[in-house]
């Protein structure tokens, strides 16, 4: 049990680290802006899940595959599949947002609170 948990953490570290490292190589080598990298990674996550590839990565990597933005794409696609199976074509429209609602709602709400309470600060 203990060994299994340690292995799980190592996998999360390695898979998550590799996905981020790939992003860094893209930033340095292609001069793509951070915003484009994020779009690319989410789209890649959706496509790889659609092709049935990301499920395997998530199986091994755990949080290492779900925490990076490719994992956001994975949740979107997985949610779409699940709702399509349940509700038919309508599910393609409801599934993605349903599966990622918690994260998006949390980002909106916490960011709003932060903006009300805090000021930006420069570094000197």
């Amino acid at each position: 049990m203990m060994r299994q948990t340690i292995l799980q953490y190592i996998n999360a570290f390695v898979i998550g680290g590799l996905i981020c490292a790939a992003g860094q190589v893209l930033i340095d080598r292609t001069k793509l802006t951070a915003a484009r990298i994020l779009v690319l990674f989410v789209s890649l996550g959706v496509v790889l899940t659609g092709l049935g590839i990301y499920q395997g990565i998530a199986e091994v990597g755990g949080a290492g595959a779900t925490i990076p933005l490719t994992g956001f794409g994975y949740s979107l696609a997985k949610g779409a599949f699940k709702d399509v199976d349940k509700y038919g074509l309508l599910g393609a429209f409801t599934g993605g947002i349903r599966a990622t609602a918690a994260g998006v709602a949390a980002a909106v709400f916490f960011s709003y609170l932060a903006a009300v309470a805090f000021k930006p600060k420069a570094k000197s």
């Binding site: 981020c20 490292a21 994020l38 960011s111």
Partner: peptide, 22 residues
């Protein structure tokens, strides 16, 4: 960290919160 903190979901949160604050 560059992409190391941009790509994880915490980076997504940062990209929402930072313009809101700004």
């Amino acid at each position: 960290a560059g992409a190391g903190s941009i790509v994880p979901i915490t980076g997504f949160a940062n990209s929402v919160a930072s313009p809101a604050i700004e």
